[in-house]
Simulated assay, not measured.
Amino acid sequence: MLGREPAAWLTLVAVLVKLAAAFGWDASPETQANVNAVAAAAMGLLIAVLVHDGLGAAIIGVAQGALALAIGYGLDWSTDRQAVVMAAITIAIGMWDRTQVTAKVPKKPVLPTV
């Protein structure tokens, strides 16, 4: 299911979780911090297992975990600001990861049209 882009799919999941919190999920800062920490750890673990390259996943996990803990300990950022910052970090690392990993599924050759 994850095909050639496991990091991209897992990045999408992480961003969707943050958007849900930003646009409708009314949870306490502590609950959001805990959910973000668990999601960050799970995403980092899955990427590391799937592509056998844990550096990008580890950086994202650390950034998400650090933000989640900072929010839990009183950082006063709106959920919108959290989502934007983490989306930017996640996309930047995802773009870097894209150049560092080899897909498990080979690229399909492009056949010339006649």
Results as ranks from 00 to 15, higher is better:
M1K: 11
L2S: 12
E5A: 15
E5M: 15
A7W: 12
A7Q: 15
W9L: 14
W9N: 08
T11A: 11
T11R: 05
V13G: 03
V13E: 00
A14K: 00
V15I: 11
L16F: 08
K18G: 14
K18F: 12
L19P: 04
L19M: 10
A21Q: 14
A22H: 07
A22G: 08
F23H: 10
F23G: 07
G24W: 10
A27V: 13
A27P: 06
S28T: 12
S28V: 02
E30C: 10
Q32C: 11
A33W: 05
A33T: 01
N36I: 06
N36A: 11
N36Y: 10
A37C: 05
A39S: 10
A40S: 15
A40G: 15
A40N: 07
A41C: 10
A41P: 08
A42T: 12
A42L: 13
A42Y: 09
M43H: 13
G44I: 11
L46S: 14
I47D: 15
I47T: 14
I47W: 13
I47V: 15
A48P: 06
V49N: 11
V49I: 15
V49Y: 14
V49E: 12
L50C: 06
V51T: 14
H52C: 10
H52P: 03
H52M: 11
D53R: 13
D53K: 13
G54F: 10
L55F: 06
L55T: 10
G56H: 05
A57T: 06
A57E: 03
A58S: 12
A58K: 04
A58D: 02
I59Q: 01
I60C: 10
I60F: 08
G61I: 03
G61Y: 01
V62W: 11
A63R: 02
Q64M: 09
G65D: 03
A66S: 10
A66Q: 05
A66M: 09
A66K: 05
A66I: 04
A68Q: 01
L69Y: 09
L69P: 01
A70H: 04
G72W: 00
G72H: 00
G74Q: 03
G74I: 00
L75Y: 03
D76N: 11
D76W: 04
D76M: 07
W77C: 02
D80R: 14
D80M: 14
D80E: 13
R81T: 14
R81Y: 08
Q82E: 10
Q82F: 09
Q82G: 07
A83V: 05
A83Y: 05
V84N: 02
V85P: 09
V85I: 13
V85M: 09
A88V: 12
I89F: 00
T90Y: 01
T90N: 07
I91K: 02
A92D: 03
A92Y: 01
I93C: 05
I93A: 07
W96D: 00
W96G: 00
D97I: 02
R98H: 10
R98Q: 09
V101M: 02
T102R: 04
K104F: 05
K107A: 06
K107H: 05
K108R: 08
K108P: 04
P109F: 01
V110M: 04
V110L: 08
V110C: 00
V110R: 02
V110P: 01
V110K: 05
P112W: 06
P112Q: 02
T113V: 12
T113S: 08
V114S: 08
